[in-house]
């Protein structure tokens, strides 16, 4: 089984629309939405949830207002500015210390240093992850609570589960259809968790100076982890000159050029209709998407 991860340095390049289109072309792929911050793939694939699980990726400290003596030791040791003397009063003191769960990074230092053991340290429920059926194949996806950390861990979990499903299916039916991952944007923790060990990364970019700048940063990252990388330029005709410059840069870096896709309002119309561009329109843009998919499939054959 080969794993393809689709990422984009910056958001809004059409990454998710393209993943959905690939899902309809691959027919039998296992799908994983690792863009847990802005999970949108489900809006097109309409998953029918079969399994739902809580995700806990870390711990949170919580002060028990009835035990706090308001000494402020927790505030003194916290390096994340998460503690303030603004909790409810109790028998001892008018204001107790309280921890902002949004700022708490679960380090547990306050728990250790509280002189009256007034701080609980509990597993935080950070979100849910799901195994679902879609019209194109099984899908693993998640909903991370807002302001939650550990999305890198959740990303790893989603990929692991999707891989397990793909492996089981491969063993059972001798099915070698790919695992298709909608990766996270950026270059931080979640994207690193999305791409490590993948067979191929496809970077979707657009012909803008920011797109070009972000492509450079993402390409450095994939090179750092030694992952074969292909580039697709979406909305290429917004600026053919920048498109050409991106292509030249990609060639210099030894990246695979997977193709160019037109700037086409039909892509948005398809999204509104909750369809992939392949299902929605048999136009030039759909043909270009098919061609990008074929290039990816071909270059996968040459990776190990």
């Amino acid at each position: 089984m080969k794993e393809i991860v689709v990422i984009s340095g910056k958001g809004g390049t059409g990454k998710t629309s393209l993943v959905a289109a690939f899902a309809s072309l691959a027919q039998n792929a296992v799908l994983a939405d690792c863009d847990v911050d802005a999970a949108d793939l489900h809006l097109i694939l309409k998953p029918d949830v079969q399994e739902s699980h809580d995700f806990s990726g870390g711990k949170l400290a919580r002060i028990r207002a009835d035990k706090c003596i308001g000494c402020g030791e927790c505030e003194r040791v916290c390096r994340f500015e998460a503690v303030s003397l603004s909790g409810p009063g109790n028998d001892i003191i008018a204001k107790t210390c309280t921890i902002d769960p949004v700022a708490c990074e679960g380090c547990g230092v306050c728990v250790q240093f509280c002189p009256v053991d007034a701080i609980d340290f509990e597993d935080a429920i950070n979100g849910q992850w799901f195994v679902s059926k879609t019209r194109f194949g099984p899908m693993v996806h998640a909903r991370l609570g807002t302001a939650e950390e550990n999305s890198g861990k959740l990303v790893s979990l989603i990929r692991k589960q999707a891989k397990r499903i793909a492996d089981e299916r491969g063993a059972r039916a001798n099915d070698d259809s790919p695992l298709l991952v909608d990766g996270s944007p950026g270059i931080g923790c979640p994207v690193i968790a999305s791409i490590t060990g993948a067979d191929l990364v496809l970077v979707v970019t657009e012909p803008t100076l920011s797109g070009r700048h972000d492509l450079d940063r993402v390409a450095q990252l994939t090179a750092h982890f030694g992952i074969p990388t292909a580039v697709c330029i979406n909305k290429w005709n917004i600026n053919p000159d920048v498109t050409e410059a991106i292509e030249a840069g990609a060639r210099d870096k030894g990246l695979v050029l997977a193709g160019k896709i037109d700037y086409d309002p039909a892509v948005t119309y398809a999204q509104v209709a909750e369809k992939t561009i392949i299902e929605y329109a048999r136009n030039r843009t759909a043909t270009q998407v098919v061609s990008v998919w074929n290039v990816i499939m071909d270059s996968l054959k040459t990776t190990k």
Binding site: E3, S156, R159, K163, A193, T196, G197
Partner: peptide, 9 residues
Amino acid sequence: VQSHSGMNS
């Protein structure tokens, strides 16, 4: 192997 290599497999 590098760090994180088994993260997904």
